[in-house]
Simulated scan of single mutants.
Amino acid sequence: MRKILGYILSPIHYLAFGFFLLLFHPLQWLSLKLGGYEAHKKTVDIFNLCLLATYYLLGNSVRFTRRFDLPTDRPILFISNHQSMYDIPPLIYFLRKYHAKFISKIELTKGIPSISFNLKHGGGANIDRKDSKQAIAEILKLAQRMKANNWSAVIFPEGTRAKTGNLKPFSAGGVATIIKKVPNVLVVPVAINNSWKMVQYGTYPLNTFINMSWTVLRPIEPQDASIEDVIKEAEDAIRNHIQSLNS
């Protein structure tokens, strides 16, 4: 039944999603030109709230839980599992006061209304996976911006999406670079559950009436532990939380 409803509701979702992509592209340009970073960021926050709202057109729901008070006066590295492209708008919107930036594939900086513009001008890192030197340089620049502005970053250490929801091993990569270059960074795991089910059948039809959740878990102070231990602690916390929800 959910799949059948997906054939009916997916076009409605895509029309709304596409409308917001087209609407917010000139709005981002205008806000950046007239109001600089702060105005652009507020526009991007609203844009991602609108994208998030399109999930509900499929009967899906989003629950975001922040169990711990997080500081706004120091950089945060949010470490999250990654299940689908639909992970991103809730993270941007609900973590908006932490100025969370993303490490994204450079290919995404071209050809996608609103999204490509934000990736170019939003302050994140756009990396070429085929060019390790360029990728490291971009992450180092992001680390410098985090230190200078108390910005935060979101990283997906699995490296790619877990299309069946099963957690893949975390790699050090960009996590290690940021921890080394931002001495006062706080590491915060985020567990995403069930967003993979939204694209269980591919891009069409999208799945319907899925309860999805984003949960901010206990912060980790990385200064007193090895990077490997920090990554393992974050991975274990995310895995244990997802298992507890699905057991």
Rank of each mutant, 00 (worst) to 15 (best):
I8Q: 01
I12K: 07
L21D: 01
L22W: 11
L22Q: 03
W29Y: 07
L34E: 07
T43V: 12
T43Y: 02
L51D: 06
A53C: 06
T54R: 02
T54D: 06
L58T: 01
L58R: 02
N60Y: 07
S61Q: 13
F64W: 00
D69H: 03
D69A: 06
T72Y: 03
T72W: 12
R74I: 04
I76G: 04
L77Y: 08
L77N: 05
N81H: 08
H82K: 07
Y86T: 13
I88K: 05
F94V: 01
K105E: 10
I112D: 05
I112V: 15
P113D: 13
I115L: 12
N118W: 15
H121W: 13
G122E: 11
G123A: 11
N126F: 07
I127W: 09
S132F: 04
K133I: 09
I136S: 10
A143F: 00
M146E: 01
M146K: 03
K147M: 05
N150F: 02
A153S: 13
A153Q: 08
V154Y: 12
I155L: 12
K168F: 09
A172V: 13
G174I: 11
G174V: 00
I178A: 03
I179Y: 10
V182K: 11
N184C: 03
V185W: 07
L186Y: 05
S195C: 14
S195Y: 15
M198I: 15
G202E: 02
P205N: 07
T208Q: 12
F209G: 09
R218A: 11
P219W: 04
D224A: 12
D224F: 09
S226L: 11
E228D: 15
D229N: 14
V230Q: 09
I231Q: 09
I231Y: 04
K232P: 00
E233F: 02
A234V: 01
R239Y: 12
S247I: 14
